[in-house]
Nucleic acid binder design. Structure first.
Length: 204
DNA sequence: TCGGCGATTAGCT
DNA sequence: GCTAATCGCCGAG
């Protein structure tokens, strides 16, 4: 791996949408059992805590599952959806403010053959890392990793100085959150335009 | 304690 | 385009 780890202070800043946008182009790496796998983040979504109906922590809802979102920025929040897909989020802001960023898509950078094996796909398959469930499958992340730091030995983010130009960044409403009324329209999804590893699928 | 449902995906048609 | 798969979470009772 080349480049430097993103410090925890990157995630403890107050504006979750800016952090989500700045994550584009950075690398998300996992290192389980000596198997290093890396995806470059190409799609992300911001969840704005207590005032965001689409967030699990809306209205400061705090349960056994969501309590991880109240940790300080830089903590991983992983949960199971539809009984079979795991979603990987990064908690942001300071302690007790439950902001989070969902990683929705990534381009394979390193450990590609391992990721293909985990996903039961070919190395050339661009659907590895496209969609939040696939990101977790490729990187080997599961709900047991919820609560650990994203600046740890097992999971970390690093910056290898790949710069994404503003004109190459697309912004849109979030996917799959129709149930959240007006908040479903918020422009909290960020992606790299034209990248093959961005999930383009819209619900309904 | 119980029952409905979800920040989705893959595989058909 | 449509839908089954599949199970932990959470609010109601």
């Amino acid at each position: 791996m080349k480049g430097k780890k993103v410090p925890v202070s990157f995630f403890t800043r107050p504006d979750v949408a800016i952090i989500a946008k700045e994550l584009l182009g950075k690398c998300l790496a996992t290192n389980f059992d000596g198997n290093l796998t890396v995806l470059r983040i190409v799609e992300s979504e911001a969840y704005n805590g207590a005032i965001d109906k689409a967030s699990h922590a809306f209205n400061n809802r705090k349960t056994n599952r969501t309590k991880v979102m109240y940790e300080k920025g830089g903590t991983a929040y992983v949960y199971l959806c539809y009984g079979l897909h795991q979603m990987f989020n990064i908690v942001t802001n300071i302690e007790n403010i439950p902001h989070a960023i969902l990683i929705r898509g990534g381009e394979p950078v390193s450990g590609i053959s391992i990721m293909a094996l985990r996903a039961n796909k070919k190395v050339s398959d661009t659907s590895i890392g496209r969609g939040p469930g696939n990101v977790c499958k490729a990187l080997g992340i599961h709900t047991g990793h919820s609560g650990i730091s994203v600046n740890s030995e097992e999971i970390f983010i690093y910056d290898d100085d790949v710069k994404i130009k503003n004109k190459d960044i697309g912004i849109s409403p979030r996917i799959g959150v129709d149930y959240s009324g007006d908040d479903a329209l918020l422009p909290y999804r960020f992606y790299i335009k034209g990248n093959a590893h961005v999930s383009g699928k819209w619900r309904k």
